[in-house]
Amino acid sequence: MANEFLNNINEFNLKEKYLSTNPEDSENPVFIKSEEYVNKDAAVQEKSSHEKSAIAVSTTNLSVWFNDKPGIENVNINIKKDSVTAIIGPSGCGKSTFLRALNFMHDLTPNAVVTGEINILGKDITEYNSIDIRKKVGMVFQKPNPFPTMSIYDNVISGLKLNWGHKKGLYDEIVETSLVQSGLWNEVKDRLKISAYSLSGGQQQRLCIARTLAVKPEIILMDEPTSALDPISTAGIEASIHDLKKIYTFIIVTHNMQQAARVSDFTAYFYLGKLIEHSKTSTVFTKPKEKLTEEYITGKFG
């Protein structure tokens, strides 16, 4: 039931977002909530469609070194836009390390050095500063981490409030949209002003997703987003991903094979810091090219 609801709601919102690229739809007044908000989207969409590449992330010989030991080594990968790519592999193989390289998150690790090339949305990553890149490439973490001093409402708009100085008038609408997209709206719409910490773990995680969506990134990185959650919350989040992938590029690290099979279009298998295989999820799970991949998927190790 929850999923059904989710699907309906998400369709509603997806249209809103599409609207910006398809001006012919705009006669439908329901979806025009605020010109400014829509225009910003339009600008973003236009710019990236202008570049006309279907590749969201592309890396060349990407390595990350911790104290001169490689966490990942020479990773070459092209990740398709508006799709879901699952990253799988045994613990310690470098999945998080790969993900964190894509939005300069290694900045926070004092001894990490990133080498190689990363291309994000058609531009070399070094052309962005660390703030811009993170606006384009959002991230959801394994453990839910809402801001403890803020209400649910403030959590959702935190990325906007602390950054662009959006007009206050738009906040209500953005909060609603984002919470609907992450499937949390129904549960919290009457208590938006209470502390985010009073939510359950699964709700907190969906709040974190809403918070990320509110910034309207183009790529969303998720590092084991459901590993701390119950099956129902997991299903909710997977449903959101499924619906949102038409407009967002998702890269999801997961230890759960079924999840990878369920939600992803492409799957990349990492082993000991190297990218072993990357292709359509159906291919990876049915007839993997590499022996290592097969062993992992069939549960021989890992």
Partner: peptide, 16 residues
């Protein structure tokens, strides 16, 4: 650290 990461990942500047 996770709170700092959460904030930075939203594109919020270091100082904010």
């Amino acid at each position: 650290i996770s709170l700092r990461e959460a904030s930075l990942a939203l594109g919020i500047s270091r100082w904010k």
